[in-house]
Design a protein around this nucleic acid. Structure first.
Lengths: 145, 145
DNA sequence: GTGAATGCAAAGAGTTTGCAAGGTT
DNA sequence: AACCTTGCAAACTCTTTGCATTCAC
């Protein structure tokens, strides 16, 4: 059995290493789409893992607060979706159908933020940029329907 | 009484001009912050206007589908917020405390979208860019707390 | 007058919380 | 052993829906 990365991350952050936390961590780590709390719950259940939906919510909230993952809102859907918080600041191209996520290169906003800070005197804490569309696969499927 | 812009907009779109629709339209038209369905409901109630929350939701859904307004998600809050869909394509700087919205100039994405379309073969339908922070007023208030 | 919009009440999602039982350090 | 985390069930918030009544055209 390979050494669990999750255990290292948790102890570094001073949080307990529980089976459920490791499961959620590993799933998000190895997934390249956005996942909702419910999806995480069902994926783990389908693997015969034992976990409760409210535990998933509590773990996700904890991970967000520790900066392990990020919480996004999908436009026109009232659910939150989650993904690993990779260290580089990045933006994504998200397929509205399958929720696949493609990272898009550099952030073009460093300079925009700076000039906004100067002109508006806002204390700018961050920005969201998400580009939406249909990936090549889903694009074809939706044309056929 | 001045001529109602809402009436013109509605008839141009082929939808009925009801008192409730005009109220919601005028409120959003004259508001420079994002408003949630519930806020719209309470503002109108506080003006002694008679309207029902589910009617507000139905009207907002209709307006979104007709392109009259836009629906946004505020990060880390599971509510939708709405604003007029001004004809120019624009992005906003949003105060996380008072929800004030400041438009920010040109959209720097025309060209990014084009190149993404080419490199990823996505059918790109649009993008969200929202910059968050605290406006000068709220910035000072939160320092004091 | 007719079909569409509204109000009301109830249901439905998604998410959060209280508490007892179990697990981690 | 002490405290934190989990499971379960119930509550809560936001949003949607069914149906009878009312309204716009």
């Amino acid at each position: 059995m390979k050494i669990q990365e999750s255990g290292l991350v948790f102890s570094r952050l001073g949080i307990k290493n529980t089976r459920q936390r490791a499961m959620v961590f590993d799933l998000l780590k190895n997934t390249d789409t956005l996942l909702t709390a419910e999806q995480i719950y069902y994926v783990l259940r389908s693997r015969d893992e034992n976990i409760n939906l409210s535990t998933v919510y509590r773990i996700l909230e904890l991970f967000v607060s520790k900066g392990i993952i990020k919480k996004l809102n999908i436009p026109n859907e009232n659910v939150s979706a989650f993904e690993m918080n990779r260290p580089e600041h990045r933006h994504h191209l998200i397929c509205m159908k399958c929720k696949k996520v493609i990272p898009i290169g550099e952030c073009p906003f460093k300079s925009l933020e700076k000039s906004l800070r100067e002109t508006t005197e806002f204390d700018i804490t961050g920005h969201n940029l998400e580009v939406f569309g249909y990936c090549p696969e889903c694009k074809h499927k939706s044309q056929m329907q």
